[in-house]
């Protein structure tokens, strides 16, 4: 599976991707379809649009950091 980096992608594209997945953003944080702020359960912090990863498993939006990614691998296995 290809890892597509959003590092150099503009905010408009990030927002558009999130919208297509049923999320929204105020330009900083991310909200789910119920308008609830998306919180990364592995670090217990709100996910910021400029540092997000979107992974499989019901389209999980997480903060991009080693603790969250290791947690994801523990829960889902190394699926990519």
């Amino acid at each position: 599976m290809e890892m597509l980096s959003l590092k150099n992608e503009p905010i408009e594209l990030r927002v558009a991707i999130l919208k297509k997945m049923g999320y929204s953003s105020d330009g900083t944080f991310i909200f789910d379809s119920n308008g609830k702020m998306v919180v990364d359960p592995y670090v217990d912090e709100a996910v910021r649009i400029d540092n997000m990863v979107i992974l499989h498993g019901s389209e999980i939006v997480l903060d991009s950091n080693p603790l969250s990614l290791a947690g994801y691998f523990e829960d889902h296995g190394e699926v990519f």
Binding site: M1, E2, M3, L4, I54, P66
Partner: peptide, 21 residues
């Protein structure tokens, strides 16, 4: 976005910030 999300849903890609992490 539409093309990428379709590829994501086909399990061809994932979105990440920094591949090094």
């Amino acid at each position: 976005a539409m093309a990428w999300v379709e590829r994501f849903r086909n399990h061809e890609i994932i979105f990440i910030e920094d591949p090094c992490t």
